[in-house]
Simulated scan of single mutants.
Amino acid sequence: MTINIGITEKNRKHITNELSKILADEFVLFTKTKKAHWNVEGIDFYEKHNFFEAQANQIDEFIDNIAERIRTLGHYTPASLKSYLELTQLAEPISKYDSQSLINALLADHEIIIIQLRRNINIFANDYDDPGTSDFITGLMKDHEKMAWFLRSLLK
């Protein structure tokens, strides 16, 4: 069935390609955050264990919302580890399990995602005529900025 929502198929394809990259980054960040949740060690274990779990749960919601936005625009979502690793710009490994090392690694990833989202806000609205997705990723960027602030605050 033809989708007629005021965005050309070509533009919807460009948008969903970028959203697929964002989805991959979110999935890798989710996995790394769960790894931090499961493996954190140190005197602050319990506090950071719970903190990382809360952040992982929030990222899990982001993943679902991004996948649903891709489907709303009429395309299928990538949904394999192989595709995520091909699409992501994040490095996967974490090798130190003290809370400070984990926080630094996750903070760097949030900042990479924030920059990518910020770059796409105007492109989606102006170049691809999709203010809806632009608004969606603006909200996502603000959520990541807040999560990064929380992580940054733990480093002081």
Rank of each mutant, 00 (worst) to 15 (best):
S153G: 04
M141W: 02
D44C: 02
T77G: 05
G6R: 09
S80F: 00
K34T: 11
H144R: 14
S153C: 06
S99V: 09
H144D: 09
I137D: 01
I7P: 03
F62I: 03
I3D: 08
L140V: 01
I103W: 05
L85H: 14
Q58C: 14
E61C: 12
S20A: 04
I70Y: 11
T16N: 01
D127L: 09
Y128K: 04
D129R: 15
P131T: 06
G42D: 08
D60Q: 08
H14P: 10
R119L: 07
K96M: 14
N50M: 15
M147K: 14
I59Q: 02
F150V: 08
K142Y: 05
F124Y: 01
N50A: 13
E145L: 03
K48T: 12
F45S: 07
T33S: 10
I114R: 05
T2E: 14
F136V: 11
T72C: 05
I43F: 14
W149V: 13
I114D: 07
A79S: 13
A54N: 12
K146V: 07
D98L: 07
E18T: 00
H37D: 08
E41C: 05
E86T: 04
F136H: 06
Y84T: 00
F27E: 10
L151C: 04
N65M: 11
N104Y: 15
I22D: 00
F124P: 00
H110P: 08
G74S: 06
E53G: 14
D143A: 15
L106C: 13
E86C: 06
I94S: 05
E47R: 13
L107Y: 04
T2H: 15
K21E: 03
L151K: 01
